[in-house]
């Protein structure tokens, strides 16, 4: 190549620092969103690290843990009193400590989702408009009772004892189900869960879809993060909201295109390695004494919860 460097490349940007008093940049909504997307990788890594620890619960076979998960979720759904639900909650809490989980981040997630899907969804049913019963906390007093379509709005509106009980039950069930599920996910690596599901005769197609999805969530989260860094490296000031949305839309289209192409390549790669609608997973090891013992203990404790 001849040395045909354009003249403008020979002129040098001034090294003198400019006036740096130009105000400060704010983090845009899109940037925050991308940071959260990138955190998927971090969460995945932290989960994998916790699940790979050499602690007692991590060492139990995944099949035992998956059966434990299903059995205890059934118990949580069958129980109809607060005491049992609280006891199950305490039991899972103790297990989390034994498994050396990060209790703060673990319960932060449990409480956040239980609040949204348990408490908020059920909260209106605590009112006497929905659940009839003894009002223990009056909220409004209307001049007279009203009849609205199928609803009878009483003169006094408030929280009923029965309603609060129902909301508490639902929130606790949600919290317990979530904590048991997250507990198993945090103490078992993803490949082990897949092996356990395969051993329990879960359909191959379903396992293949979740395995590939799980893997590609990480790959694409990494690509999104890199694309963001590439944009940042060429961005001199702040991107306007409109430009930010335009960039995000362009990148989504690019990702879609890339995903479609990648999907075809993966299928070809699978076929070339002998894929024929059936996943053959290596290494369903024999259950050892530790697995049988811990399985039996969990079963026994579950039975006690069922009968108290």
């Amino acid at each position: 190549m001849k040395n045909n460097v354009p003249a403008f490349l020979l002129s040098r940007p001034s090294y003198e620092p400019r006036n740096f008093d130009k105000g400060r940049l704010k983090t845009s909504f899109i940037e925050k969103g991308i940071h959260h997307a990138a955190q998927i990788i971090q969460t995945g890594y932290v989960n994998w690290e916790t699940a790979s620890k050499d602690d007692f619960f991590q060492g139990i076979d995944a099949r035992v843990k998956v059966i434990f998960l299903l059995f205890y979720i059934i118990i949580v759904s069958l129980k109809n009193d607060l005491i049992s639900e609280v006891l199950i909650g305490v039991f899972v809490f103790i297990l989390s400590i034994v498994a050396s989980l990060n209790i703060f981040s673990f319960y932060k997630r449990v409480i956040f989702f239980s609040f949204i899907f348990g408490f908020l969804a059920a909260a209106p049913s605590a009112l006497n408009i929905i659940t009839k019963g003894h009002i223990i906390l009056p909220l409004f007093h209307l001049s007279s009772a009203h009849h609205l379509w199928i609803y009878q709005i009483p003169q006094e509106i408030g929280l009923t004892k029965e309603g609060i009980y129902g909301v508490s039950m639902l929130t606790l069930r949600c919290m317990n189900s979530l904590s048991i599920s997250l507990f198993v996910l945090n103490t078992t690596t993803f490949p082990d869960i897949i092996k356990a599901l395969k051993a329990m005769l879960v359909t191959d197609a379903f396992l293949m879809v979740i395995t590939l999805s799980y893997k590609y969530i990480f790959i694409f989260a990494k690509i999104v993060e890199d694309m963001h860094l590439a944009k940042k490296s060429r961005l001199v000031g702040q991107m306007s909201a409109v430009d930010g949305r335009r960039w995000a839309a362009g990148r989504i289209a690019f990702m879609f295109k890339k995903t479609t192409l990648r999907c075809e390549e993966i299928m070809k790669a699978m076929l070339s390695r002998g894929f024929s609608d059936n996943i053959k997973i290596y290494g369903a090891r024999k259950l050892c004494l530790k697995d049988w013992t811990s399985g039996a203990i969990l079963l026994l404790i579950g039975m006690i919860f069922l009968y108290i």
């Binding site: 400019r18 008093d21 130009k22 400060r24 940049l25 001199v236 000031g237």
Partner: peptide, 8 residues
């Protein structure tokens, strides 16, 4: 985060 420095 300083706009002037970032540009520089």
């Amino acid at each position: 985060k300083n706009k002037g420095f970032l540009r520089f």
